[in-house]
Write a protein that binds this DNA or RNA. Structure first.
Lengths: 211, 211
DNA sequence: AGACTAAACGGACTGCGGTCCGGATATTAT
DNA sequence: ATAATATCCGGACCGCAGTCCGTTTAGTCT
């Protein structure tokens, strides 16, 4: 097992600086707090899709440049807002109790992973969608890479013998927020039905054999 | 079999008006020709991602409003540019020779469909990606609905007995242009490897059975 | 031909994400 | 305390997709 570090995503509300030489300047820290607070307010008021960088800057009482220096982009802002929930989810499927965490058979872990992911998207879907929107490298995002590796690893453990890397890509595609949100919110499919279909999918992929 | 109409997408370079009372006005027809011609030039020069609506309007010598009246949106423009290739592809998998068209066993048709789709994306991927970008209802686009129904139908014919609608959604997700382009252009996977993984996927999905 | 009308035109305008750089400020060294 | 400096701030600015509405024009009717 590789020594993968947990939570490679942006530090959430924690005050710790990322790296480099000196610590974070006090005004910068203060502004980050203001921005995160204002952002959460705005998400609650307008929904994730209704949050604009201008509104956020105005609400927090800072300049627009400050917003972009802090978060890099709109997607970066959304990732930051998600980071706590994301870290908690990562902890559960990597170190938590079975069937999601280690201890259960790989196929059951895969099934549980999909089910948990669907629930996650039902709760944070808008943020998650916004976090990967327009990002030219949404597939390289640390969280996405981690999920991919996890699925790939479970496929391998379950005895899947043909290109687990690509199969993990296909399975990840099924669980993308945009698709799941559309299925539930527009086409009115129940999350339970999505979970059952995921179960069918992974069971057949792991179990079946193709010449 | 339902009487699905072929090519429900935007009429390409054909001069025919869509419907309604009167025919298309002559200046409108002239401007559409100018716009399509200019658009193809720009795609060749700048790539699909480099085409902006302003550039297009200037190149065609028309106002910006005209561009949007004609195509509705940037995505609409891209769909129009794709319509010929798209119609040809649709014709092939619905009425063409086996194994893609009718006559071959469903599983072989599914395998061929993925392979052809991958080749299609290798050729028109940028346009296809741009055609479904930012569209709030990319999943409702006529072409996407048609593919979905086709896959669903093949799954049913192959004896798949559990929620073919959702399974078709998962399979479609694997074939999305953005993902395939990223796999080939950024991660340098060969199209052949993608095709083989698709073959594994559909074979297992169709063949295996899950309690 | 001349008047009438519905359709098409065009470009100014808005809102957005993102960039840039001159000026302000916190921190450190003296 | 004062000076030096690296960092941060702010908002003007850009390019883009998409909208709006006053103006022009093609087709039609007399």
């Amino acid at each position: 097992m590789l020594g993968v570090s947990l939570i490679p995503i942006r530090s959430g509300s924690s005050p710790a600086p990322s790296a480099g030489s000196g610590a974070e300047r006090s005004d910068a820290a203060r502004n980050r707090e203001l921005l995160l607070c204002a952002a959460r307010q705005l998400v609650e008021e307008c929904g994730a899709d209704g949050v604009t960088m201008d509104k956020l800057a105005e609400r927090a009482g800072v300049g627009k440049g400050t917003v972009f220096r802090r978060f890099g982009s709109r997607a970066g802002l959304m990732m930051t807002l998600l980071s706590d929930a994301e870290a908690e989810f990562q902890g559960r499927f990597m170190f938590g109790p079975p069937p999601l965490g280690p201890g259960a058979p790989p196929l059951e872990r895969l099934i549980a992973f999909g089910a948990e992911r669907i629930r996650y998207v039902m709760e944070y879907g808008e943020l998650a969608r916004a976090a990967e929107a327009s990002l030219h490298n949404r597939f390289e995002a640390p969280a996405a890479v981690l999920w991919h590796r996890h699925i790939e690893h479970l496929l391998g453990s379950a005895g899947f013998d043909a290109d687990p890397w690509l199969m993990a890509m296909s399975l990840s595609a099924t669980l993308e927020p945009e698709r799941l949100l559309h299925a539930v919110r527009v086409q009115h499919l129940s999350p339970e039905r999505l979970e059952e279909s995921w179960r069918q999918l992974v069971t057949r992929v792991v179990g079946g054999a193709a010449g």
